[in-house]
Amino acid sequence: MGAPVRAAAAALVAVVLAMIVDVPSAQAAGCATSKQVYQDAPSWAQKLVDPSRIWLLTKGTGQTVAIVGAGVDGGNPQFGAGQVLASNDLVPRPGGVADCDGRGTFAAGIIGAQPNDQTTFVGMAPGVKLLPLRYTAGAGDTNPGDPGRLATAITQAVHAGAGTILVDVPTTVDSPALDDAVSAALAAGSVIVSPAVGAQAGVVSYPTALPGVLSVGAADQNGAAVQTESGDYIDIAAPGADLVSTSAGGYGHSWPIKDPAAAAAYVAATAALLRSYQPTATPAQIVNRLTLTASRAAGGGRDSRLGWGIVDAYAAVTSQLPLSTPGPDASPAAASVPNLVPAAAPARPPLNTLVGGLALGGVGLAALAGLITVTIRRGRARGWKVRL
């Protein structure tokens, strides 16, 4: 395709994108929507996780990530056809829109947005399927943290085959039903990822604080914690400020966003990539690998708001680390976790290298053929006979 044709195609796509505003999400008053397409340089968070290095190994294909919260708008152009799965809502949709709150679509983009020539933004695991499970309408819901509905949503995610369950909107209230749902999901082999989003000291998020859940704190680009919530249950951290991702409303992107909940999306995407690459790993083994490979701060110990450090997706997927390795808090020597050397992802040989190799191979074969010809002629002249 020539440059004029590509330019015309890009212009046409831009015009079509500019027209995609007449949808229920964009029309709903008070809903989080955007009419802008992000075209700046890749954000610091995207540079940090750098998912393209992992894509030669896996893009998360075959994995389903459930997003439990306030819904996902699958109409955004960066989601592939059929990538966002249909699901039953546990609460009515305000105004009939798929995601008025906006957080679910933002998280879904971090996880699985497809590459697109119109933007530098792309999701970490574009091969995954996304399963929205709405248990709250978000900010407008009178009871946004109902643990019973959250428990039901987690159970539905397991029954739908979600290997990774992201609780995008956690609750601040625990219940026996929620505890049982989490335990059953872990026993069924699902990894549950939940953020610490408490804005006030002493506030605890659930299921974030429950045993077995991969609990996520948030950090800015300087490595400082974003959220107020702290506790020894926080396992790992990820970018949570100055973020960019897909917007609800069937269009564009939102940025710069500061949201501790978004950090969990990066961790959920990494878990999905790891599950795709090592499908026999148990939830406990995946949590263990993610915490062991995290980028630690000075001292290497566990931080009450950032856990064992910032997620390192490339190291988590590629490091030569037995899945049975004890976790970072398995002994008093937790702070001295051995240095891990990531295995290099297989790279495609450059075209000139491949051609050069073929050329050298051809020269070698020609020389060998010449040597054989000379040898046969001399042998015949001397009366050699071949014995079988």
Rank of each mutant, 00 (worst) to 15 (best):
N288W: 09
A32M: 09
V122D: 01
V68T: 01
L210M: 13
A219W: 04
P115H: 11
T105P: 02
G161A: 06
R296Q: 10
G250W: 03
A185D: 04
A248E: 04
G71L: 11
N352H: 14
T293V: 02
G379V: 10
A185H: 03
L48R: 02
P51C: 08
K258W: 03
V182T: 08
A153M: 11
A298I: 14
G60P: 05
A313G: 13
P144G: 11
N352S: 15
P283Y: 06
I154Q: 04
S319L: 06
C100W: 02
G249L: 02
Q227N: 14
V213N: 07
I257T: 15
Q36G: 12
G163R: 09
I67S: 02
P350C: 12
G370H: 08
A151I: 08
D242C: 12
Q39N: 05
K258N: 08
A153K: 04
T208Q: 01
P24G: 13
I372Q: 02
G361Y: 01
A107Y: 03
A241C: 11
T293K: 04
G379S: 14
A381R: 13
G102R: 01
A81C: 03
Q200A: 15
M124N: 08
S87K: 01
R377F: 00
A3I: 06
P279K: 07
G138Y: 01
T291W: 03
P338K: 05
